[in-house]
Simulated assay, not measured.
Amino acid sequence: MATVKVSDATFEEEVLKNDGLVLVDFWATWCGPCKQIGPALEEISEELEGKLTVAKVDIDENPSVMMQYGVRSVPTLMLFKGGEPVATKLGADAKGNIVKWVQDAAA
């Protein structure tokens, strides 16, 4: 399953009402590190299909959700479990480190 594009209008339905794990990537088109981790997030979404949904929120197009969760820099990765935020990771990182962070936070 590929990453899911989420907007201010669909955030509640796609993330908050999702009973499973959702990794939200707050990103921007002008952000170099965001582009750097994009392919890794696509791979993670496919490798963990059925266990994790990877949602992408473009902060320039969707400022409400960004402000609601206090996102001040991109990329910011936020993990939601049962609709509640459980962990936040700032900045780009290697794929293996992101997977480990998700597994540790979800445990």
Rank of each mutant, 00 (worst) to 15 (best):
M1L: 14
M1Y: 15
A2S: 15
T3K: 13
K5L: 04
S7W: 05
S7I: 11
A9I: 12
A9V: 15
T10K: 03
E12I: 12
E12C: 08
E12T: 15
E12M: 10
E12S: 13
E14C: 09
E14T: 09
E14K: 12
L16N: 13
L16D: 08
L16F: 05
K17L: 14
K17C: 11
N18T: 10
N18C: 10
D19I: 03
D19E: 15
G20I: 06
L21K: 07
V22N: 03
L23A: 05
D25Q: 04
D25W: 06
F26K: 03
W27H: 13
W30G: 08
C31N: 07
C31V: 10
G32M: 08
P33I: 02
C34F: 09
C34V: 14
K35V: 08
K35Q: 10
Q36C: 07
Q36F: 13
G38Y: 03
G38F: 06
G38D: 05
P39S: 01
A40H: 15
E43C: 01
E43A: 10
E43D: 14
I44E: 09
I44T: 02
I44Q: 11
S45T: 08
E46F: 04
E46V: 02
L48S: 05
L48H: 05
L48T: 00
E49F: 00
G50W: 11
G50P: 00
L52M: 10
T53K: 13
T53I: 12
V54C: 03
A55H: 09
A55N: 06
A55W: 06
A55F: 02
V57E: 08
V57P: 09
V57G: 08
D58W: 13
D58R: 14
I59W: 04
D60V: 00
E61V: 09
E61N: 10
E61S: 13
N62H: 05
N62C: 09
P63Q: 12
V65F: 00
V65W: 00
M66Q: 11
M66C: 12
M66N: 06
M67P: 14
M67I: 15
Q68M: 11
G70P: 13
R72S: 08
S73W: 06
P75T: 02
P75A: 01
P75C: 04
P75Y: 07
T76Q: 05
T76K: 06
L77K: 02
M78S: 09
L79F: 12
F80I: 09
G82K: 07
G82Q: 07
G82L: 15
G83P: 14
E84L: 06
P85Q: 15
V86W: 06
K89F: 12
K89N: 10
L90D: 04
L90A: 03
G91E: 03
G91Y: 09
A92T: 10
A92I: 08
A94Q: 14
A94K: 13
A94P: 05
K95P: 07
G96Y: 11
G96E: 08
G96V: 14
I98D: 07
I98G: 04
V99C: 02
K100N: 15
W101E: 04
W101Q: 04
V102N: 04
V102R: 03
Q103H: 11
Q103G: 01
A105G: 02
A105W: 06
A105E: 12
A105K: 09
A106I: 01
A106C: 03
